[in-house]
Design a protein around this nucleic acid. Structure first.
Ligand code: MN
Ligand code: MN
Ligand code: ZN
Ligand code: ZN
Lengths: 142, 142
DNA sequence: ATACTAATTTGTAATCGTTACAAATATAAA
DNA sequence: TTTATATTTGTAACGATTACAAATTAGTAT
């Protein structure tokens, strides 16, 4: 019950300034354990087995909280389904158009498509960057 | 009325195997002219002035058709709003978290964040690739 | 321990973007 | 002019996400 993993999960939440409730612990543990970029529906149905009372609202609230606190990143590779990733390190995502799975691959500054796992074939590539544009940067400094 | 632009738009649609109806011409012309990655709502309200009878269903159908025929690419930089770009060449997109605008920037294989327009500050970067994974690739070849 | 306060969770209803569908319209062929 | 086909339109349905207020839980003061 109070095994190593559980303790780590708890510490990670606390370090991010998040009070480690049961729901938050289990949701974060799931994301840490299952690095296959689950959709909200997948998260909900799997977690519902662990916490039968879990509500979808809590799941959404918690995921938004994790994103806000930067311990989880939203994957917007598909417009119609939100996916989440507890691996916030710099890496790319590959979505197979046939089986629908989302895979990780190394991506650091200057990385090329060749970094894809062997056998993977790229058909479309898209680089998104979020931040501040020149004007907004100025207005904030001022 | 039958100016150069109009002709080009028409040819481009025909070359993609799309019958150039009035709605399709105007939607595509808008995308070609306004390269600021409009949302569907922006497209609808602006185009509604040109074609008062335009329906939202036609707009969605047309955009999906353009994407299918590969003369337009969907921008999934934000999960809650579809954006579209008639520039299908390889380039990156930058979204300002303050003003919300989506800017283009050069991105070809091996490009780094340094390629951002001067004054722009990156806070988060995400590389998405679509294609076929190793297994699915094999099963198709077979 | 009890009472009180604040934070969290839950269920339901509302919202928003997108798609399904069938009728109406326009285009092309016979 | 018929007839068939493709396109557009309006409305209804759908699915994902959020708003909201009640219920529950956790924390603090008495
Ligand atoms: Mn990942
Ligand atoms: Mn662009
Ligand atoms: Zn696959
Ligand atoms: Zn800006």
């Amino acid at each position: 019950m109070t095994d190593k993993t559980e303790i780590d999960i708890k510490s990670l939440l606390e370090e991010a300034g998040i009070k480690p409730t049961l729901q938050r612990l289990k949701i974060y543990e799931y994301l840490i354990t299952n690095k296959n970029h689950p959709t909200v529906d997948k998260l909900y149905s799997d977690l519902h087995d662990l916490i039968p009372t879990l509500s979808k609202t809590t799941l959404y609230n918690t995921l938004n909280l994790f994103v806000e606190k930067k311990i989880t990143v939203p994957i917007t590779i598909e417009m119609d389904e939100g996916r989440y990733d507890a691996d916030v390190s710099s890496h790319g995502h590959f979505k197979c158009r046939k089986c629908g799975a989302v895979y990780d691959f190394p991506h650091i500054k200057g990385t090329e498509d060749g970094e894809l796992p062997s056998g993977f074939v790229a058909e479309r590539t898209h680089l998104y960057v979020w931040g501040l544009c020149e004007n907004c940067q100025k207005n904030i400094e001022k």
